[in-house]
Amino acid sequence: MSALYTWVVIIIVFSIWIPETFLTTLTWENIAASQAITAMLTLGLLFPLAAGVYDLAVGQTLGFAAVLSAYLVNHGFGTASAIAVTLLAGLCVGVVNGVLIVGVRINSFIATLGVSSVLLAIVGAMSNNIQITGLPSSFERLAGAQPLGIPIAVMYLVVLAVVAWYALERSPFGRYLFAIGGAEEAARLAGVPTRRLMFAALLISSTTAALAGVVLTAKLTAGDPAAGPSYLLPAYAAAFLGATQFTPGRFNVIGALTATYLLATGVAGLQLTGAKFWVTDLFNGVVLLIALSLPMVQGRLRRRSADIAAREASSAPSGS
């Protein structure tokens, strides 16, 4: 729960420091909308992470989908069919990841790095590393609309979060993934179809990344070939930071969302104070490392005091 307190502290600090810019609806709308894409990516990523599989291709899959959707609408596809084809392409990336990791049994870390590189090449080929612009207005409305005054991207996120929460925390699928992540062989011996589920988890992370890519293109009204990689670290940071919260030691939806917005609030606040551009990266990195170190150090201290207590307890009867 410490993330919630930290978040409150960050908000209070900036409210006192720069009240005239920080405490505006515009700032909050901005934070909410801009982070919806990172948060969506993170939610999908939680599935392979729960099963102990690293999908490092999610960032580049997002970038690939962003460019592909723009490319398609500029090459005669309707908005709906362009989105459908893009999501399908995302699914295909997941299939490739799954075949490499579950079928061929390549270490997930390096397999998805390799796939990332291939996707980067495809993005280059489609875009010539130039933003694809001139998208139809029907496409822009995907992210620009504000029903009930709420950015629509946030609504996508809420729907996705509810589904992800159910799937990870209240469905057999999620339980099985955590079992695989805990001890793959033990899960298999308990009758869990480990390979099939790891494959499914990779399909989910890729398809969600593709969806996030479509939303990004709609929001920017351009397909940005450079967008993908910059989303990778924030998504992992949010997932791991979130795993220290609410249900410690376990990747979880609420924790990931909280972590995303905690980081985003801090970054937005720092930017409004006029800090240098690199402070963003510094803040993200430092918060992540502190948050991951704290439970480790606490655990070690707790173990040490438990050891001392046990030693005293065991020596007591022999002493008397």
């Binding site: 209240r170 469905s171 057999p172 339980r175 079992a179 992540g181 805990g182 899960a187 009758g191």
Partner: peptide
């Protein structure tokens, strides 16, 4: 067994006590 899961989760793993068509756990 899976050390990182709760006792309850280990106990039910091979046959989860789900309810309804949504297999709500």
């Amino acid at each position: 067994a899976i050390a990182s899961l709760a006792v309850r989760e280990n106990l039910t793993l091979p046959r989860l006590p789900t309810r309804g068509p949504a297999r709500w756990l």
